[in-house]
Amino acid sequence: MGYTGEVSVGGTPDVHELPDLIITKVAVGAMDNNAYVLRCRATDEQLLIDAAAEPATLLEVVGGDGLVAVVTTHRHGDHWQALRAVVDATGARTHAGRDDAEGIPVATDVPLGDGDTVQVGRVRLTARHLVGHTPGSIALVYDDPHGHPHVFTGDCLFPGGVGNTGGDPAAFAALLGGVTTKLFDVLPDETWVYPGHGNDTTLGAERPHLAEWRERGW
């Protein structure tokens, strides 16, 4: 059976094998957070997106080859509970959105702005700054040269809508606008979306509902 992206806390991770990159998705913690370990096939270097919880689980997925970097998608506590333990165990460099770094209680080695890149081996990810869920949330885009793009959206985009903006109309408009212009307007329908919680989706599955989201206001 191929990759589905359906994982549960305490269950088996799911592995998405691409030509240049292996993506392992695991669910951790009381809030069912997704964490993603990315391994460059050419170099075996690894990067973790969101050290959310359960450091022992995350380190088991990482294995003995170590970790070069951890990217925290945003400042909310459920996305960094295991960050200190993972960094202490691996020596990985920390990355986060520049405008959220002050809200993460582990120092950010590499603050990220819109368009900045993160390298794992020979694979490059591009950060997209998305305002609304938090001031400095970032999505990471991997433009697979052998196929369609892949985007790790944190809590900014899920199946069925954008992330929580606390009922603030301005924050919702900012987040929907950013997701529209920086993801939907520039990436194809086949783009695979890996969110911070729950199941995966594609931009094509969500694109027909943009007007509906705008109308409902959340």
Rank of each mutant, 00 (worst) to 15 (best):
A56S: 14
A56H: 15
L59T: 12
V61Y: 01
G63Q: 13
G63T: 11
G66P: 02
G66R: 10
G66C: 10
G66S: 10
L67G: 11
A69E: 07
V71P: 08
T73G: 03
H74Y: 11
H74E: 14
R75Q: 15
H76E: 14
H79S: 09
W80G: 00
R84H: 15
D88G: 07
T90I: 10
T90D: 04
T90S: 12
G91Y: 02
H95Y: 15
A96T: 01
A96W: 01
A96F: 01
E102W: 03
G103I: 06
V106T: 09
V106E: 08
A107G: 07
D109C: 09
D109Y: 11
V110T: 15
G113E: 05
D114L: 05
G115Q: 05
V118D: 02
V120D: 04
L125H: 03
A127V: 12
R128G: 04
R128Q: 09
H129T: 06
H129P: 06
G132P: 01
H133D: 13
P135T: 14
A139E: 13
L140W: 02
V141N: 09
P145N: 11
P149Y: 09
H150Y: 15
V151C: 08
V151W: 06
F152G: 00
D155L: 00
D155P: 00
C156Y: 03
C156L: 09
L157T: 05
P159Q: 02
G160W: 01
G160C: 01
G161D: 05
V162R: 08
N164T: 10
N164A: 14
T165V: 12
G166Y: 10
G167F: 12
D168G: 09
P169L: 12
A170E: 15
